[in-house]
């Protein structure tokens, strides 16, 4: 039986067990990198840099982890903060609005268009909807990660979904199909 996250965290804290931390990184890397890819609108290189920074901050701040929340919730909160820091550091860029095709042709194009549509959302909306759907966090966990009231988190998710629905209307399957 593989050790739980709590066991591994304890081993890192008590003996600076690098192997235990490496296991935690391998276990959570996909979710953290996936979230950051969505937040960075599909920029894989930037997302990986931010994910690396996320795990480094997690290692340094592991004593601050309270076992009450899931470790993934705690890691996603750090990832979101790292992302926000990076957007503050980066010079504002004018993003060219790319036209979304009328009919998606394959899966990679759909992913690309979703990234474009996500890029038009406010960072908090983007994070909220990514956390709620792709990462399967509860609304309460989303609120904890974004450090906002539960009602605000629900509003962010609903608003983001409505914007995406409008933006990606071309993908909506017709009733004839």
């Amino acid at each position: 039986m593989s050790p739980t996250d709590a066991d591994l965290v304890l081993r890192v804290l008590e003996a600076d067990d690098r192997h235990a931390f490496s296991t935690l990184v391998r276990r959570h890397q996909s979710a953290v990198r996936g979230l950051l890819r969505r937040l960075t609108c599909g920029d894989e290189a930037l997302a990986d840099d931010l994910a690396q920074e996320t795990f480094l901050r997690a290692y340094r701040g592991l004593r601050g982890y309270r076992g009450g929340a899931r470790l993934s919730t705690w890691l996603h909160r750090i990832a979101f903060n790292v992302f926000l820091s990076s957007t503050r550091r980066a010079a504002p860029t004018v993003q060219e609005e790319e036209e979304i095709p009328t009919r998606p042709r394959d899966r990679s194009l759909m992913r690309h268009d979703l990234d474009l549509a996500l890029g038009e959302l406010a960072p908090a909306e983007r994070a909220a909807i990514s956390l709620a759907y792709a990462r399967e966090h509860t609304h309460k966990e989303v609120a904890a990660i974004l450090d906002c009231p539960l009602g605000t988190a629900k509003t962010l998710i609903a608003r983001a979904k409505e914007k995406l629905r409008r933006r990606l209307r071309a993908w909506e399957p017709s009733e004839a199909t």
């Binding site: 690098r18 931390f21 990184v25 890397q29 969505r38 759907y133 792709a134 990462r135 979904k161």
Partner: peptide, 19 residues
């Protein structure tokens, strides 16, 4: 379905770089 459709990302040396 679209929003929840997130593939697993292979490690490909990421963990080693973090360590």
């Amino acid at each position: 379905e679209l929003l929840g459709n997130d593939d697993y990302i292979e490690d490909k040396g990421f963990s080693a770089r973090v360590m």
